[in-house]
C-alpha cells in the first residue's frame, strides 16, 4: 500500500536517513522503533511528502507519491509529535478548521466532529479552549483532528510522549480500535518498546538513520533465541563486579540498570554459579537474580550496544 525504496536524506554532509526501505500492507499496524535522533521523524516526514528526500522513492499504491502527492495526502493522516493545534481556539473550532481543509462541510463535518469527539472522549470539553486542557487531553485532540477525514493511512510520531499512564492507555486502546475496527493502516513510531510490542504486527528498528532489523515481534526476539537475559540486583554497585562479569566468556553485554546490572549471555552455560562466585570475589552482595526472556529492548541493545533511551 505505502512503501519507501532506498530513502535517503542528507543535510549538507550529515546523513539523517540512509537507504531506508520499508512497506505497509493495507490494514497493518507497523512499528518504527529507535532512540531519539535515529531518523524516525525524518523518515516519516519524507513518507508523508512533507520533506523531499535526497534520493529514493515513496510509493502509494504503486504511484510515485513524491511527484503526485495529492492522492496520498487525501488518505493520509499524520499525528505529529508536538501538539500541533491552535490552542487559543476550542477543540470544536480546531476540528472544524482541520475538517474543512480536507473538504468536509455542513452536516457531514458536524457528524464527523461528533463521532471523533466521542472516540477521543472529549465531547464534554469540546467548547473549551485547548490551552485549558491537560497534557493527556491535548494529546487526544491532537490525534482527533487527524481522524476527521477518515484517513486510510495513519502515521503517528510518538503520540504518547510526556503523558500520564492512564491517558497513554486510553490512546493505545484507541489506536488498537482504529486498526482493528476501522481497518486503518498504521505506522507507529516510538522509543517506548512496550507500546510498539503491544500495538504492532511488524516492527522496524532504526538507528543512526538506518533500518538495522525488521520483522514481527517474535522474529526480532529470535535474534536473541540463543541468549538469555539475567537481571542482577546488588546492595552496592561495584565497577569491579561489572568488569568481572563483562570479561566472562559467555557474557555478551553488561549494562547498569538502577540498582543492578542487566547481563545478556549465551544460553545453556551455567552462568549463575559463576555470577555468585564473581560477586564474592569483588565483595559485592547480590540481593536478587532474575533470568528473563529477551525483550525488544534487549534486541536493540544487542544490535546497537545502546539502550533505546540512551
Amino acid at each position: 500500500m505505502l512503501e519507501t525504496k532506498a530513502l535517503t536524506k542528507k543535510f549538507k554532509s550529515y546523513e539523517a536517513v540512509s537507504n531506508v526501505s520499508l512497506y505497509l500492507e493495507e490494514g497493518e499496524s507497523v512499528g518504527l522503533l529507535g532512540p531519539n535522533g535515529a531518523g524516525k521523524s525524518t523518515t516519516i516526514s519524507m513518507m508523508s511528502t512533507l520533506l523531499p528526500p535526497t534520493s529514493g522513492e515513496v510509493r502509494y499504491n504503486g504511484v510515485d507519491a513524491l511527484n503526485k502527492p495529492q492522492e496520498l495526502r487525501r488518505v493520509l493522516g499524520v499525528v505529529p509529535q508536538e501538539i500541533a493545534l491552535y490552542e487559543e481556539l476550542t477543540a470544536y473550532e480546531n476540528m472544524k478548521f482541520f475538517g474543512r481543509i480536507y473538504g468536509l462541510k455542513g452536516q457531514k463535518l458536524e457528524q464527523r466532529i461528533k463521532e471523533v469527539l466521542e472516540l477521543i472522549g472529549l465531547t464534554e470539553r469540546s467548547k473549551d479552549r485547548v490551552e485549558t486542557y491537560s497534557g493527556g487531553m491535548k494529546r487526544r485532540i491532537n490525534i482527533g483532528v487527524t481522524l476527521l477525514h477518515e484517513p486510510r493511512v495513519l502515521i503517528m510520531d510518538e503520540p504518547t510522549v510526556g503523558i500520564d499512564p492512564q491517558s497513554r492507555n486510553y490512546i493505545l486502546e484507541m489506536i488498537r480500535r482504529l486498526n482493528r475496527e476501522k481497518d486503518m493502516t498504521i505506522l507507529y513510531t516510538s522509543h517506548y518498546m512496550e507500546e510498539v510490542e503491544k500495538l504492532c504486527d511488524r516492527i522496524y528498528i532504526m538507528d543512526h538513520g538506518e533500518i538495522i532489523a525488521s520483522g514481527t515481534n517474535q522474529e526480532l526476539k529470535n535474534i536473541l533465541a540463543n541468549d538469555e537475559t539475567i537481571r542482577i540486583d546488588v546492595e552496592t554497585l561495584s565497577k569491579d563486579f561489572a568488569d568481572r562479569l563483562s570479561s566472562h566468556d559467555v557474557v555478551q553485554k553488561v549494562t547498569q540498570e538502577g540498582t543492578g546490572y542487566k547481563v545478556i549471555a549465551t544460553k545453556g552455560d551455567d552462568l549463575l554459579g559463576d555470577v555468585f562466585e564473581l560477586a564474592k570475589r569483588s565483595h559485592t552482595k547480590i540481593t536478587s537474580v532474575v533470568v528473563q526472556t529477551p525483550t525488544l529492548e534487549d534486541v536493540f541493545l544487542h544490535l546497537t550496544g545502546r539502550t533505546l533511551r540512551d
Binding site: S48, P80, L85
Partner: peptide, 13 residues
C-alpha cells in the same frame, strides 16, 4: 514551530 503548519502541508491544500 508548533507543527500546525505541517498539518496544513499534509492536507490537500
Amino acid at each position: 514551530k508548533t507543527g500546525t503548519w505541517n498539518r496544513l502541508i499534509f492536507s490537500p491544500l
